[in-house]
């Protein structure tokens, strides 16, 4: 979870981002995105998911290449540990989203970043998923993110970068606010 130093404001194309914001304010329909993943059960708790296409700016889009991810569970869960635990993928998503946000906000504010590292920790009581205690939730009780940011800016300005990144983060929003999930079977 490290972003390294880059030429041109933190390697972020600020003009393109601002241009997109302006264009999408005029044509909000283009702002409707659909993200997709496909998954297939392999064996045990091992699942392989792949990401390729998504929809945005009014048309089908593709990543430069297909990305594949394995998820599984560690051996102490009597599994094969073929990949990260799905809950760890949530931390990957949060780290990626907040760090990318910091780089973008910094670029917009003309702040040069030297390094951005983070450690993330999530507390979970697995009595929830094991159905031992109905009062204990399945998911995280809380997530703690510790950022170390080295940048040409004051402590307050750095704190404000990190705060603004949370304010504009999709994953932060998905985790901190209730969302809706629809699951269909054999349709």
């Amino acid at each position: 979870m490290t972003t390294s130093v880059i030429q041109l404001p933190n390697g972020v194309n600020v003009d393109a981002l601002l241009g997109a914001r302006e264009a999408l304010t005029e044509a909000p329909a283009g702002a409707k995105f659909v993200w997709r993943a496909e998954s297939e059960w392999k064996d045990g708790t091992h699942t392989e998911s792949k990401l390729d296409g998504f929809f945005g700016l009014g048309e089908e889009q593709r990543h430069v290449r297909e990305f594949r991810y394995d998820t599984d569970h560690p051996e102490i869960f009597a599994a094969e540990d073929e990949g990260p635990t799905p809950v760890e993928m949530i931390l990957v998503g949060l780290a990626g989203c907040l760090t990318g946000g910091i780089a973008s906000v910094a670029a917009h504010r003309d702040i040069t970043l030297h390094s951005v590292t983070a450690t993330l920790e999530a507390d979970m009581d697995i009595q929830g998923i094991l159905g031992i205690d109905a009062d204990i939730r399945n998911g995280f009780n809380g997530i703690t993110v510790n950022f170390q940011v080295d940048a040409d800016a004051s402590e307050d300005d750095i704190a404000s970068l990190v705060a603004q990144s949370q304010k504009r983060s999709a994953v932060f929003d998905i985790i901190t606010n209730p969302g809706d999930v629809t699951v269909n079977v054999n349709q």
Partner: peptide, 10 residues
């Protein structure tokens, strides 16, 4: 929302 800490920090 779980964003209380952040809105206060902001």
């Amino acid at each position: 929302s779980g964003s209380l800490g952040n809105v206060c920090a902001l």
